[in-house]
Design a protein around this nucleic acid. Sequence first.
DNA 1: CACAAAATCCTAATATCATTAGGATTTCCT
DNA 2: AGGAAATCCTAATGATATTAGGATTTTGTG
Lengths: 211, 211
Amino acid sequence: MNETVRPLTPESRRQRNHDEMAGNILQAAREVMREQGAADLNLQEVARRVGMRAPSLYTYFPGRTAIYEALFVLGMRMYRQRLEALLTEHGATWAGLERIMEGYLAFALENPELYQLMFERPVPGFVPSAEGLAEAARLLDVSRRMTEQAITTGTITSPLSAEVTMNLMIALMHGFTAQHLANEPHLPAGSGRFGSLIPVLMDLLKKAWLR
Amino acid sequence: MNETVRPLTPESRRQRNHDEMAGNILQAAREVMREQGAADLNLQEVARRVGMRAPSLYTYFPGRTAIYEALFVLGMRMYRQRLEALLTEHGATWAGLERIMEGYLAFALENPELYQLMFERPVPGFVPSAEGLAEAARLLDVSRRMTEQAITTGTITSPLSAEVTMNLMIALMHGFTAQHLANEPHLPAGSGRFGSLIPVLMDLLKKAWLR
DNA sequence: CACAAAATCCTAATATCATTAGGATTTCCT
DNA sequence: AGGAAATCCTAATGATATTAGGATTTTGTG
């Protein structure tokens, strides 16, 4: 079950370019993290899966932390794209907000290794780089825009500021996702003790914010 | 800054009993985890702080994991006591529920190393033992009783079952706590982007559940 | 086309830990 | 007193990240 990225011979490998190899390494790293937990990134295993020895990885990344950083940035970009797609598709309607909540959980289930890195603190000593933080800020911008849109279009009617509303929604969304992952990570997004809570939560928000 | 548990000479140490020494080790472990993150429990450092070498710890615990397990159980007991105290003091009133939410965040801030171990998954490969799970189940029982009480006494009026209500409250409580810890762990419990959200959230629940 | 520079990869250290082995010393019970 | 149990230590062992140093291949340029 280790062959998703096929080992290449040195000859064929060298024909490919640097960026492609770096991409392969990141993919292999994601697999390892998914199997053993985000904090347990074993470089020898990563190297094995791309057909190298561990020290050769240092040609592509200056160390373990750099791989985490690259994956943090990758994850932020992937999730932001997903969020933006949902936003253009549904707008800041109630249905759209519900999709966003589902989408957060779905992203976490589909990419648990990235989710852990981005939104939990599983790796001792890992702090996102400046580039990572910039990417996170961009994501926050999208969320802010979305919340403002929901307020100005009248989807949400409440005395709360956009900022507070956004923080609240982030906290709620994160809350049931974290619980779902901790307790029933094998169950699909809409099900289980916590996964099934999304429509309940949306009803609650509607009741509180639509009057 | 390493001297909270004072190293003892072998002579004076042997006069103390096994359980007391085990307790010292757990305290030292908590300090190390607090300084370096729950996943970074360094046994050499723990041993140093209680005046031993690392292999001697194995007299008291069969390994690193056993220390995590003991701390998991300890944390569950500490938090449950706190919860029960709040419950007897305030009952399942709105004020009581708000205190419980604050208390969860406060516990996390006061004992971050225990909180991480109990409610996040920071340690690769760590799964709570049977005793730990039993302790967690006891905590869940208290929460369930509390929720049922809130419903039967009429504090909460909603069409939701006690089970769903409880899960929802757990998810919400955990959500802003996790965000507070991830973003502003140095700020005290009632403040900051997420810590200040508790009264907002309680208002929201009241609006939704008091009609 | 040749050849020097750069890139890539490897094997061999080195350093840090958890854990195990084995033995010495101390404590405790009878 | 004398032996069993408990406690602690020093020395391995084994895993893993990282560094050093060198060989080989690729590539850009005269």
